[in-house]
Amino acid sequence: MIRIENLYKRFGRNEVLKGIDLQIESPGIYAVLGPNGSGKTTLIKSILGMVIPDKGEIFFKGNDISKSPDYRNDIDYLPQIANFPANLTVKEIFSMIKDLRGGQASDQELMAAFGLSPFMDKRLNTLSGGTKQKVNIVLSLMFNSKLIILDEPTTGLDPVALIRLKELLLQEKAAGKTILITTHIMQFVEEMADEIVFLLEGKIHFRGSVNGLKERTHTSNFEKAIAQTLTHHYA
């Protein structure tokens, strides 16, 4: 579904991606991991076309993404920080995104699931951080897209909403979707991810299953496995 070839990107003097090759074909949950500044967000934003690579190509369903913005019709994206136009209401922001994308949206069920219905006519600047994140999640999941990209989805969620999110992701996975997640919560990764893509200094350091990483580092604890990977690398 996604094929990334030889991707390079630098911001000023800071070389963030140094030749990434990545191919994701089968459905499932993929966790993109790595320390701060390893290029996780840049990689995701490159796929979304928000960051324009210096070198390399990205193909989505076999098409070069730099040609047309239409491929984003098949991607749902949950940004890291949710901040909306302050004076629009929740209802308006939903209709705006639906307006921009067209197509079927399952916003009603999702809103019910996250308990957003009472907030529909509230202005976005009156909502709490958690509620905004819920709006954010509903916005990004309401279209039935093949690829779902979530950048730090767990931020600011209460336990009930977190459980809802997990259920939802599993449901989507069962529906045959590809889900790309970045997160710092290792427990979440261990529980949810089918495969991890571990970035270090702009390159893919490891790709495989959670168990694969455990085996490679000879640890039974995932967090320790990660920590050991890092110390081993920097040692």
Binding site: L48, R72, Y77, P79, I81
Partner: peptide
């Protein structure tokens, strides 16, 4: 509207 812009950029 920076973050909002990002949200928009992820749209087709």
């Amino acid at each position: 509207s920076r973050e909002f812009t990002e949200l928009l950029l992820a749209q087709p």
